[in-house]
């Protein structure tokens, strides 16, 4: 039985059923679901009347479009030169200890995914990272602990 995929349909309504809408649709699917699943790719292809292979090809090209399940918050630490010079390795070590995961992994509670990324355009304030869309700069291990704690506390509040 063919079920309609409401998320995709709404996005296609919003952005229009044309190829130019593919990136915005993918970006929004990811934002809502923290993954772009193969099922969703097929549904997007159907809505836009393009091939599923095309959707797959585009989705897998872009580093911010994740086709594996990510945590609610994706932490991306800049690993490019000036952030490296200013101690990004120390920041990563701190985060790995705090979250008890390695780079590339997601915490068991599904809250955080830890990743590296290339230059974030904050080089004068390195080390820098993004948590989803929000930039954090001039990081120190202490600052990172505070930031992660803040996110955790907010989650607890939402949950209770």
């Amino acid at each position: 039985m063919l079920q309609t995929n409401e998320t995709i349909k709404k996005l296609a309504d919003k952005f229009g059923r044309k190829e130019e809408s593919l990136l915005p649709i993918l970006e929004n699917v990811y934002e809502q679901k923290h993954i772009i699943s193969e099922d969703d790719m097929v549904d997007i292809a159907r809505e836009l009347d393009i091939s599923a292979a095309k959707v797959y090809g585009t989705a897998t090209f872009y580093s911010f479009l994740e086709t594996k399940k990510c945590g609610k918050y994706v932490i991306r630490i800049c690993k490019t030169i000036t952030c490296m010079m200013h101690g990004k390795n120390q920041i990563i070590k701190e985060l790995e200890e705090l979250l008890k995961v390695n780079l590339g992994e997601t915490t068991p509670d599904g809250l955080f995914t830890l990743k590296e990324t290339n230059c974030l355009g904050q080089c004068h304030k390195g080390p820098a990272m993004l948590i989803n869309d929000a930039p954090f700069t001039e990081l120190t291990p202490g600052k990172v602990r505070d930031i992660v704690n803040k996110y955790r506390q907010e989650e607890k509040q939402v949950a209770s």
Partner: peptide, 19 residues
Amino acid sequence: CGAYICGEETSLFESMEGH
């Protein structure tokens, strides 16, 4: 969506066109 190459002008058009 996180691709340095998309700053290259023709790659940027491709990306806007959904490729």
